[in-house]
Simulated scan of single mutants.
Amino acid sequence: MSQEGYDKLVAELKRLESVERPKASAAIAEAADKGDLSENSEYDAAKEAQAHLEAKINDLKMTISQAKIVDVSRLSTDTVQLMSTVTMTNLTTHRQMKYTIVSESEANLKQGKISIKTPIAQGLLNKKVGDDVEISIPRGKLRVHIDGIAIEA
Rank of each mutant, 00 (worst) to 15 (best):
D78N: 03
Q50H: 13
A150K: 14
I57L: 01
A55M: 08
M62G: 04
T77P: 03
V70C: 08
I120T: 11
T89F: 03
A26F: 10
S65T: 11
A46G: 04
D59S: 12
K47V: 15
S65P: 11
S2I: 08
I151Q: 05
S84N: 02
V129L: 11
R15D: 06
M97T: 12
L125P: 05
S103V: 06
K47I: 15
V80S: 07
T79E: 06
L53Q: 02
Q96S: 12
Q122W: 06
T118I: 06
E106V: 04
N108D: 14
T63N: 09
A29G: 10
P22V: 14
Q3C: 04
A45W: 06
S18F: 00
A45G: 12
L53S: 09
E30W: 02
I69T: 12
L60Y: 00
L125G: 04
K14F: 07
R74I: 08
T77H: 02
T118S: 11
H52G: 13
S105H: 06
L125S: 05
R15W: 00
M62L: 05
K14H: 12
S84M: 07
T85G: 06
I101T: 09
V72W: 07
G148H: 07
D71Q: 07
A49L: 15
I69F: 01
E39M: 12
D132P: 03
D44V: 15
K47D: 09
V70R: 09
V19M: 01
A31Q: 13
V102L: 04
R139Y: 01
K14Q: 05
D7L: 11
D7S: 14
Q66Y: 07
G148T: 09
